[in-house]
Write a protein that binds this DNA or RNA. Sequence first.
DNA 1: GTCTATAAATGGATAGAC
DNA 2: GTCTATCCATTTATAGAC
Lengths: 215, 215
Amino acid sequence: MTSAVLKSPAEAPPKRSFRAQMHLAREDAIVSAVNRLLAEKGFEAMTVDEVAAEVGIAKASLYKHFPSKEDLAAAAMVRVMDRARAFLDSLQSGNANARPIDQLRAVARWTLEVQLAGEMPSLPSENSSLRASLTTNKAYVDGLMDVSDRLGAWITAAQADGSLNNSLPPIAVLYTLYARACDPVLGFLKSHGQYSSEQIIDMVLSTCFEGLQAR
Amino acid sequence: MTSAVLKSPAEAPPKRSFRAQMHLAREDAIVSAVNRLLAEKGFEAMTVDEVAAEVGIAKASLYKHFPSKEDLAAAAMVRVMDRARAFLDSLQSGNANARPIDQLRAVARWTLEVQLAGEMPSLPSENSSLRASLTTNKAYVDGLMDVSDRLGAWITAAQADGSLNNSLPPIAVLYTLYARACDPVLGFLKSHGQYSSEQIIDMVLSTCFEGLQAR
DNA sequence: GTCTATAAATGGATAGAC
DNA sequence: GTCTATCCATTTATAGAC
């Protein structure tokens, strides 16, 4: 409480770090709330008031951290992208000699798990103000390109080893995987009530990789 | 111009019909505009002002035809459902002895064509005000159930004849087909620029029915 | 940085003349 | 039924005290 204690030599560095950590923790709480609301109702339907209420701070405080609603949403998108990159890291270090097709399947499974957990922001519609904001956000664009490059390497490798349909352009495969991360089928089946999360994920993974037709 | 001419016995019935037709034509123009805007930006981002501007009438006039924005959107959803039912009619009368799996494929192709034409309204997010409005709209619910029943019959038939993966619950197949009708992959590939509409449809149909994995 | 209070703009819906 | 003009709630964003 007293400045003598707080400014003691041993505590001085932790004190700056503590404040910075509080700041980051607050921003992380904000981004988490935004992320959840984006997943639940999308960018247009989400209001800044809701975000402030969920975090438990005043709206004006939000604007001290992020200058606009678009930046708020962009921060959530960047964080999801970072989570994806971290997962790709773990895949590459943990199963370096796994088949490329299995790595792709693991990535798809991960995105479905994130979506079922209510943590996958829905895609901004093509002419959203968010879309324009994202394309000028270096952190987001860089993250997206990194993810695309790493998935792209697996896609071409899987096509080379004959496990992935090589009559499909790699870009079509990539976009298909991205789209599956927001597949409304998960929500349909969840609200249908009859299947567990594991069953839902297995079914969607099956239709994605093996298709609807019998083999 | 004179009432004597307009009220002549020969013209009296056409006159009422003419007015009714004008009314229906106006409403059809409204629904078309709504349909296009729903496809382009979704329910939340679409404004009633935009609809009025696109139709070329005042906003207040819109509200003489439809009592709320939700009813406006519901009318567009009902019309899409009616178009789908008409297409199912044509399929059943024209190819009565086609394989069920091919009928399902034809339906999927049709939905992709509608989407690429910019005429497929995007799904309302789960907790949208539109969703609540639709569930109490008899015309919509009846149409949806009719479509689901007819697709369901083909699905179980295709599973029985061994052409459709019978380890998938029919409801999962049905939802997968519905979701493909709004698949963002089409938009991705379209904006990518390198493929024609026909190529895009063939690729998405292939991933939907044959899957990503090589056969 | 957090708050309360408010500005500024938008959007859904309606009043009332014609 | 169509229009202009307006209401009113909501929403993004900011001012200014502490």
